[in-house]
Each structure stands twice: as structure tokens, then as C-alpha cells.
């Protein structure tokens, strides 16, 4: 596949350079919200949605800033856009699905400080992707995030029943799981050629 083709960009963001397991972006929700499968999946969806909105807005903002040669404002503009996108998702969730809103709790506003979202915006700028390419990149990144967090939640649900030494319970165990998952995802590294 050609490195600039849309399919490759999607696959690259979702699996080969998985945002969570290969680039270490968005570890906080991975450790925090992966206790239950349902919540993890909703969290993944909410994050992907914010990713998509902020990626599109970031592309537009970058065009404007580059036009006026104001690149040094990029970071501040991006973070402001992401914060508003999160607010938007939060308000719509509160209205359409209060149960889900309560389940996500504090982690919903914390999407703002999810590195993965700012990461998408920054990487697409660094790679100088076009609008459509950015769109596929953010979709891929969102898919990758969902895959990682759902896999993690599934494993942790099983692990709840296992007999684990008391010192390894909690964060250490989750990190080891993430390490093993990351090891598995390294197997996809050859996919890009």
C-alpha cells in the first residue's frame, strides 16, 4: 500500500501505530475507565467523537493560522477547540443519555486532557495531511483507541476473578496487561512494509 493512501493512513493510526499501545497516548483513561466492558466502550466512542470533531476543527484552524503566519498560537488554539468539543459532547450526553453521563463521571471532562486527542491534532499537522487524510487519520486513531480500551477492559474483567498477589493488584497489573497487549500489537509492525 502507498504510504499516502487513505486506507494505509487509517490502518496505520488504528493498528500499526496504535495510539495507546505504540505511541503511549491516552494512558490515563486506559488505566482509569477500563474496569467494565460497557463503560470502556462508551468511553472509547465519546473519545473518538471528540477526536473527530477536534481533528476537523484543528485542520481548519491550522489553515487559518498558517495563512496569517501565527503558528506560535497553534497549541493554544488547539487546546481551546478541544475543550469546547468536550463541552459539546458532555452537554449532548447529559441530554440524550444521562445514565451513560453518570457512568463516565469525572473521566468525561478529563477527555480534554487526554493526550491522544491533542496528539491527533499535532501529528496531522506535523505530517501535513490534507483534509480528507486528516479525517481518516482521526477515524483510525479513534478506532485504535476503542480497540485498545475494549481489549483492556475484557482482560481486566476476567482478571477480577483470578487470584493475584495483593501487591500486584491495581495499576501494576493493568500496566503489565498493557505491556503484553503492546507486545502483541508490535506484531503488526511489518504490515506497513
Amino acid at each position: 500500500m502507498h504510504a499516502d493512501s487513505l486506507g494505509f493512513i487509517f490502518l496505520n493510526a488504528a493498528i500499526i501505530n496504535n495510539f495507546v499501545l505504540a505511541l503511549f497516548l491516552g494512558i490515563c483513561p486506559l488505566l482509569g475507565v477500563s474496569g467494565k466492558l460497557n463503560t470502556a466502550f462508551s468511553m472509547g466512542l465519546a473519545t473518538s467523537l471528540v477526536m473527530l470533531i477536534s481533528s476537523v476543527s484543528a485542520w481548519l484552524i491550522n489553515e487559518i493560522l498558517t495563512h496569517f503566519e501565527l503558528e506560535f498560537l497553534r497549541l493554544i488554539a488547539y487546546i481551546a477547540v478541544i475543550a469546547s468539543a468536550v463541552q459539546l459532547v458532555e452537554m449532548s450526553l447529559k441530554k440524550f443519555s444521562p445514565a451513560l453521563y453518570r457512568a463516565l463521571g469525572i473521566f468525561l471532562p478529563l477527555i480534554t486532557t487526554n493526550c491522544a486527542i491533542l496528539g491527533v491534532a499535532l501529528f496531522q499537522t506535523n505530517y501535513e495531511y490534507s483534509f480528507v487524510q486528516s479525517l481518516f487519520y482521526s477515524l483510525g486513531a479513534g478506532t485504535g483507541f476503542i480497540i485498545a480500551i475494549v481489549l483492556m477492559a475484557g482482560l481486566r474483567e476476567k482478571l477480577d476473578l483470578a487470584d493475584v498477589p495483593s501487591i500486584a493488584r491495581g495499576a501494576a497489573m493493568s500496566l503489565m496487561l498493557a505491556g503484553i497487549l503492546s507486545l502483541a500489537f508490535m506484531g503488526f509492525a511489518g504490515l506497513g512494509g
Binding site: L21, L23, L175, M176, A178, G179, I180, S182, L183, M186
Partner: peptide, 8 residues
């Protein structure tokens, strides 16, 4: 040096 090492 690779990502899994960081987690471990």
C-alpha cells in the same frame, strides 16, 4: 527500548 518495555 520499544513500547512494551516502558509498560513492563
Amino acid at each position: 527500548l520499544l513500547p512494551p518495555g516502558g509498560f513492563f
